[in-house]
């Protein structure tokens, strides 16, 4: 089957079961939002898919083949990742930072080829940060830096992109900008899995949602199937107010009565 399949995934860290029996699929061209309260196991699921933490049980399949069977760089060419907070340890220029996304395509001694330069330029133009290419990332604003880091991930040119709270610490304008970039990626055929907290943004952006609670998948499917009052009360312990405006749906949480 074509797609990124997570089957019955379980993760145990320091003797504690963090994720149990999680199953869902991300297909090419769709955005799947992974939502749930803090500590539900969302980031751990992402890390297990990427091989950053060991799976205690279950499989992660890429077009039917276990991700463990791929050589590290081959897997890296297929699944890219936007880490939470997107740290950078040295003051590199934006262009050199984005260039790091080409690592899986090059052997340790190889220099950038024309196709790598093209991928870097394309990713930076898509995220509207080409004009920042000679600036040091450490001197950029939060929004500019988030775009550079997204470009870095996009420069990989992977079939699937996993993002752990890419809109955290961004203002509303930049949150929308990042989500628009994600939508454009999906439109280009990339399967996108995003960990997110903003329910309205999830409702407006994602094709499918996976709601996690206490290490397990509580609900999955369309927004209408997942974001029910009952599910939201069970997962987050909140009631919600819903409304529509200009063709967009909104959900605002409030204390459960």
């Amino acid at each position: 089957m074509i797609g990124l399949e997570i089957n019955n995934l379980g993760v145990v860290l320091s003797g504690r079961e963090i994720v149990r029996g999680a199953s869902f699929t991300v297909k090419p061209g769709e955005i799947v939002g992974l939502i749930g309260p803090n500590g539900a196991g969302k980031s751990t699921v992402i890390k297990a898919i990427l091989g950053l933490v060991e799976k205690a049980s279950g499989d992660v399949l890429l077009s039917g083949v276990g991700t463990d069977e791929f050589e590290a760089k081959e897997r890296a060419r297929k699944i890219s990742y936007v880490p939470q907070g997107a740290p950078i340890h040295w003051p590199l220029t934006a262009e050199r930072t984005v260039a790091l996304g080409r690592t899986p395509h090059l052997n340790p001694w190889q220099d950038m080829r024309d196709e790598d330069q093209t991928a870097i330029r394309k990713a930076m133009k898509q995220t509207d940060c080409w004009h920042l290419k000679d600036r040091l990332v450490t001197n950029l604003s939060g929004g500019e830096r988030a775009r550079v880091m997204l470009a870095r991930t996009m420069a990989v040119g992977a079939e699937y992109m996993l993002a752990d709270e890419p809109t955290a610490s961004l203002d509303p304008f930049h949150q929308l900008q990042v989500m628009d970039i994600m939508k454009a990626q999906a439109k280009a055929g990339v399967g996108v899995l995003i960990v997110m907290h903003d329910l309205s943004l999830a409702l407006q952006t994602c094709d499918k949602l996976v709601l996690m609670h206490d290490g397990a998948v509580l609900a999955k499917g369309t927004a209408a199937e997942v974001l029910t009052d009952e599910n939201l009360k069970t997962a987050f312990g909140v009631a919600v107010t819903r409304w529509s405006e200009n063709g967009l749906e909104y959900i605002a949480p409030r204390a459960a009565g």
Partner: peptide, 18 residues
């Protein structure tokens, strides 16, 4: 190459195939 990728942190470096 690995040291360059580590500029993005160990998690990102791992996901770049290092």
């Amino acid at each position: 190459q690995g040291l360059n990728a580590l500029s993005l942190g160990s998690e990102a470096a791992h996901t770049l195939g290092i």
